[in-house]
């Protein structure tokens, strides 16, 4: 059984059947890509995993436990972290503070009324956040305002913040969208390294086939809210149904 088991999930928005009969199994410690044309329901599916949406039908199990009806912070504390389609960071805070917050969440859980001790005196959390910034190659930017970072750096920071929580499952929604080639390649290297060196499962939504084929061990193709095929990258590349539904209209060259 996979770390994430999705069974018969359906979700309707008014007259639009955004998802129907979605079955998906993500194997532990693998990189699983979900691809599909715009509006296929990829982000909607992720929303059903993290507590942003509750599917109308079906079930979502993470490590054997149902995620349905749980609050986002509960799901996160179970070990699921998500990187959003547009970077979600704390723009008003410094880079270091951005990194401190997930480190506190990891140590103290979803609520801790520590209103008297100073942040600076929490050595263990400070050291962890510092180490994460070093790992992310961002330590020289620690005092910078997060809102002032480049898009690539924001994305890097967001991934770092998710990793600081040591999630069992990392969900990424188009992490390289809008990035320059160099930044994209950096992100690929970063994710490869994470997946090789950590005990982590990655599910990634991506339009850029270069990224998908560089990283994924399994690929699910979603079209109009339903999985079309699920297979290895090599088989997906040559699959006639996939070419017809999806690859034909995007960059296959990569």
């Amino acid at each position: 059984m996979g770390i994430l088991e999705v069974k018969d999930v359906g979700k309707r928005f008014g007259g639009l059947q955004a998802l129907s009969n979605v079955n998906l199994s993500v194997k532990e410690n693998s990189v699983h890509a979900i691809i599909g044309p715009n509006g296929a329901g990829k982000s909607t599916l992720l929303n059903c995993f993290v507590g942003k949406l509750i599917p109308d039908t079906g079930s979502v199990l993470f490590e054997g436990q149902s995620l349905l009806g749980r609050k986002p912070h509960e799901i996160n504390q179970m070990g699921v972290s998500r990187v959003f389609q547009t970077p979600e960071i704390f723009g008003d805070l410094s880079v270091m503070e951005n990194m401190l917050i997930p480190c506190f969440a990891k140590r103290d859980g979803s609520f801790e009324l520590n209103a008297y001790g100073s942040v600076a005196s929490q050595r263990d959390v400070q050291d962890r956040a510092e180490q994460m910034l070093i790992d992310m190659n961002m330590i020289d930017k620690r005092e910078e305002h997060a809102a002032a970072l480049s898009r690539g750096d924001k994305r890097r920071l967001e991934i770092g913040m998710c990793l600081a929580q040591e999630p069992r499952l990392l969900l990424l929604d188009e992490p390289t969208a809008g990035m320059a080639r160099a930044d994209t390649n950096n992100t690929i290297d970063l994710l490869k390294e994470i997946s090789d060196t950590r005990d982590i499962t990655i599910a990634i939504i991506e339009h850029d086939m270069h990224v998908v084929f560089s990283l994924a061990q399994r690929i699910t193709v979603l079209a109009q809210g339903t999985p079309l095929v699920e297979d290895t990258p090599d088989n997906i590349k040559g699959h006639p149904k996939v070419r017809e539904a999806y690859l034909g209209e995007t960059q296959v060259a990569a």
Binding site: E88, G91, S110, F111
Partner: peptide, 17 residues
């Protein structure tokens, strides 16, 4: 201050705002 800056990120960082 994190809640003021981005409440969504707070919740998806495992914190109950």
């Amino acid at each position: 201050r994190a809640i003021k800056s981005n409440q969504q990120r707070v919740n998806y960082t495992g914190l109950n705002s």
